[in-house]
Amino acid sequence: MAIVLGENQYGKAENRLVRIDRDGERHRITDLNVSVSLSGDLADTHLTGDNGKVLATDTQKNTVFAFARDGIGEIEAFGLRLARHFVDSQPSIHRAAVRIESYPWARLEVAGKPAHHSFARSGEGTRTALITYDGERAEVTGGLTDLTVLNSTDSEFWGFPRDEYTTLAEVTDRILATAVSATWRFATAEGADWGKAYETARACLLDAFGGTYSYSLQQTLYAMGTRVLENVPELAEISLSLPNKHHFLSDLSAFGLDNPGEVFFAADRPYGLIEGTVRRDDS
């Protein structure tokens, strides 16, 4: 029986990059986590330890920071620049994947006015991008993570199968909360307005979550995905991962108190995890 090397890749993970754009007195901050992964003709380093075709991960890190000196712009465009550079400049590298997380900062107010150079990390979710390039074709996926949302009513869950292990009560009024993680794939890697697509998709996710009377988190997922595709024509599909952040009504009867849907225990685990993809049907 022969033993052979299978698929492999390597890279520099989680390069923490902060750039300050100093446009006069008004500064702008870009805070990124950039991970690079490369694959290709790399069998020699695994089989014999010959590193002649291995672009050092330290070089990859340096490239990320050097490219940032020319400006970052939209993270999808920055990732495309990096991915194409690694493949086109290194004969042994046949595919590059660049994953980026962009952390939001909000401008502070000083004396009632927006500050020029003071910021606070905001809780609006983390923007993400994944760019792959194989020398001929590039693929761009945008998205976001950790966008925490909650509806305090207008959510039900009932009509599910019951067996000998079912203890969950049916409810016609519940809290529905989740931390949205979404990725959306662009139909083409060229010509998209990355920033507008992100802002529109994020707004659509929020609008659909808040505006959907929900009978299940699955129904809400489909409504959110549909709303994004209806309003961002550059996208081919969107995938969503929605953990159900359960809120259980706290029993206060031992203290002689009622609880008319006001006091809840917010459980962090275990949790239901609802995932799905909504795509365009071109048939």
Score class of each variant (00 low, 15 high):
42 L>Y: 04
225 G>A: 12
98 V>P: 01
132 T>G: 07
254 A>T: 09
95 R>E: 13
170 E>L: 05
231 N>G: 02
104 P>L: 14
238 I>W: 10
55 L>H: 05
164 E>V: 07
125 G>A: 12
104 P>F: 14
156 E>C: 11
126 T>K: 08
55 L>Y: 05
193 D>H: 03
204 C>G: 02
258 D>T: 15
247 H>G: 01
235 L>R: 06
210 G>P: 00
275 E>R: 15
238 I>E: 03
120 A>T: 14
152 S>Q: 12
208 A>S: 13
15 N>L: 02
172 T>H: 15
250 S>L: 15
4 V>N: 07
161 P>D: 06
258 D>K: 12
15 N>P: 00
6 G>Y: 03
103 Y>H: 15
12 K>N: 08
224 M>S: 08
152 S>V: 14
98 V>R: 02
55 L>F: 08
236 A>H: 09
190 E>W: 03
280 R>I: 08
142 G>T: 06
170 E>W: 11
196 K>Y: 04
226 T>R: 12
46 H>D: 03
171 V>S: 14
248 F>M: 09
261 G>N: 12
231 N>I: 03
116 H>C: 11
217 L>R: 06
66 A>G: 03
45 T>P: 00
98 V>F: 02
48 T>C: 03
36 V>E: 10
188 T>V: 05
72 I>K: 00
41 D>R: 15
16 R>H: 13
240 L>M: 09
237 E>T: 09
255 F>T: 02
6 G>V: 01
222 Y>I: 10
240 L>A: 08
64 V>T: 08
2 A>E: 11
257 L>S: 09
236 A>T: 05
54 V>Y: 12
225 G>R: 11
94 H>N: 11
153 T>I: 02
83 A>V: 09
26 R>Y: 02
185 R>P: 00
159 G>H: 06
19 R>D: 01
184 W>E: 01
181 S>A: 13
63 T>D: 09
208 A>R: 05
39 S>G: 06
229 L>T: 04
62 N>A: 13
82 L>T: 05
47 L>T: 11
12 K>Q: 10
118 S>I: 04
29 I>E: 04
213 Y>R: 14
20 I>H: 10
263 V>G: 01
12 K>V: 06
61 K>F: 09
97 A>R: 15
221 L>A: 10
112 G>S: 07
272 G>A: 12
